[in-house]
């Protein structure tokens, strides 16, 4: 049972990581002059798009998304609509937080917003996939006894890793090294991506090593 879930999780994560990798490599072949630093926004959107598409597909296929209570088309549509709304709101939320952290307010607003789109697709989207459009549940997941399944624990770890990665990514910005990756928002988005990839590796590993201690309440 455990092994099965962990294996599923590991393969899911492998696919996700591969999608990030492909999103970096493929455009380089397709678009002339593509590079992570030079055309950063393009890279950023390609990664967010890839992660979004792949995780929606995988989680839908695996059936981890909480089942709809009603099976009417209207309800499903409203769910979809709410999900999209939450996605957008979460972009705005991240944008605000990043600006409050000290990002420029008006100039390079596009870059800031792109970063928040990346953060949303790495964190909020996963919440949407695992928990559905239910903010109460999202908040509750991030507490010590809030995880109800392996996937919730995995969610905790990846989201925390992504956010910490983005936070740490802000550190090199003031340094006077004059490197291309110090430009806003390159270091933060790289940090977030690296954090996300770390989380993808760390989550199954952590769960595997703590599988004896993990107990979940029934839903």
């Amino acid at each position: 049972m455990w092994d099965h879930e962990i294996r599923a999780m590991a393969s899911t994560h492998a696919i996700l990581a591969a999608s990030v990798f492909m999103a970096t490599v493929l455009p380089a072949a397709a678009v002339p002059g593509f590079s992570v630093y030079g055309t950063h926004l393009l890279w950023l959107y390609s990664v967010s798009g890839a992660v979004t598409a792949v995780s929606v597909a995988i989680f839908w296929l695996l059936g981890i998304t909480p089942p709809a209570k009603k099976h009417t088309v209207g309800y499903k549509l409203s769910r979809l609509f709410r999900s999209c709304l939450y996605f957008f709101l979460s972009c705005l939320f991240f944008h605000t937080v990043v600006v409050l952290y000290g990002a420029p307010l008006i100039e390079s607003a596009l870059e800031t917003f792109s970063l928040s789109v990346l953060l949303t697709s790495l964190t909020t989207l996963r919440c949407l996939c695992v928990l559905g459009p239910n903010v109460q549940a999202w908040i509750r997941v991030f507490s010590r006894h809030g995880a109800m399944s392996v996937w919730d624990t995995c969610l905790q770890i990846t989201v925390a890793c992504t956010l910490v990665g983005a936070w740490v990514g802000a550190f090199p910005i003031p340094l006077d090294w004059d490197r291309p990756w110090q430009a806003w928002p390159v270091s933060c988005s790289l940090g977030a991506t690296i954090g996300f990839l770390t989380g993808l590796v760390a989550a199954p590993a952590w769960i595997h090593f703590h599988r004896k201690q993990l107990t979940y309440k029934c839903k």
């Binding site: 409050l100 952290y101 000290g102 509750r140 991030f142 507490s143 010590r144 936070w167 003031p174």
Partner: peptide, 28 residues
């Protein structure tokens, strides 16, 4: 860049308070 760096740290630590409370299940 001390002014901004300190503001960044204050903000981070302030955000940490509700997150930590929530982690302990005390916020709700």
């Amino acid at each position: 860049a001390e002014g901004r760096a300190v503001t960044f740290l204050v903000f981070s630590l302030a955000l940490y308070i509700p997150i930590h409370l929530n982690w302990d299940g005390l916020l709700l």
